[in-house]
């Protein structure tokens, strides 16, 4: 990370954490919702910083533009008066705050005590961009593949095609030299990325089935939520 990226990271990390704490502390529901907007939006920027453009945009579209509007609607429909607030007891708040800090300490110390990145193994969908790539992109009129542009690969993986693993222009999960010598484990295609596809008849597993299940699930949820929200009106009137 260079200085700009670090600055951006700390700025948006502070916004994320500050918004999350404000959600906990605030008693007014609409202010909580606004703090949540701040948190989720900053998290989307953190996603962008991590080279996950598509997920960041999805976060903005689905969470901030969709779910939060829904929540604010819920707040409005369930308010008994202007700017209602339901207070929790102060003692309970202090107690849960202390427990929360202790919990955070445990989680953070656990997380940081693990060495996640093995420097020999290389990185994941690392968005590799260096200076000079943009002029190349302009010359060929297209962005380079590795510029955080995982859109196509994500789309293909939802069609059960793992371009990132099975094809050569995908990002190999392991360095080339290593996987050439490594034995090809059946069903496990880490080595396939570096090898020509023909020599490895096994293709990696994609996400077609989960994608379809989620689609059907969304439909069921749509119908169910509409049903739940309608029936109560009938019983009331």
């Amino acid at each position: 990370m260079n200085t700009t990226q670090l600055t951006l990271f700390w700025l948006f990390a502070a916004l994320t954490c500050g918004g999350a704490i404000a959600v906990c502390v605030s008693q007014n529901v609409v202010r909580m919702a606004f703090s949540l907007v701040l948190t989720l939006g900053s998290t989307a920027v953190l996603f962008l910083l991590l080279g996950a453009d598509f997920v960041g945009a999805t976060q903005l579209l689905v969470y901030v533009g969709g779910t939060l509007v829904l929540i604010v609607f819920g707040v409005m429909l369930t308010a008994t008066g202007p700017f209602t607030r339901i207070k929790s007891s102060a003692a309970g708040g202090i107690l849960s705050g202390l427990i929360g800090i202790a919990f955070l300490f445990i989680v953070a110390s656990t997380v940081t005590s693990v060495r996640w990145v093995d420097s020999d193994k290389g990185q994941g969908v690392a968005s590799k961009i260096e200076f000079g790539t943009h002029s190349k992109a302009v010359a060929s009129h297209f962005n380079p593949e590795q510029q955080g542009n995982t859109t196509r690969q994500l789309g293909l993986s939802f069609l059960s095609l793992r371009a990132d693993r099975d094809l050569k222009f995908g990002i190999p999960p392991a360095p080339v030299e290593e996987s050439n010598t490594a034995p090809v484990i059946p069903g496990e295609s880490v080595a396939a990325a570096a090898l020509p596809l023909n020599s490895n008849p096994k293709l990696s597993v994609g996400y077609l089935l989960p994608f379809e299940i989620v689609s059907v699930h969304l439909l069921v949820v749509l119908v169910g939520a509409a049903y739940l929200a309608r029936t109560k009106r009938r019983t009331k009137s």
């Binding site: 990226q5 962008l48 080279g51 968005s127 002029s135 302009v138 510029q147 955080g148």
Partner: peptide, 13 residues
Amino acid sequence: MDTLLAANSLAEY
């Protein structure tokens, strides 16, 4: 980490 200001030929120049 680089996408945010990446597609930026001016920076490159």
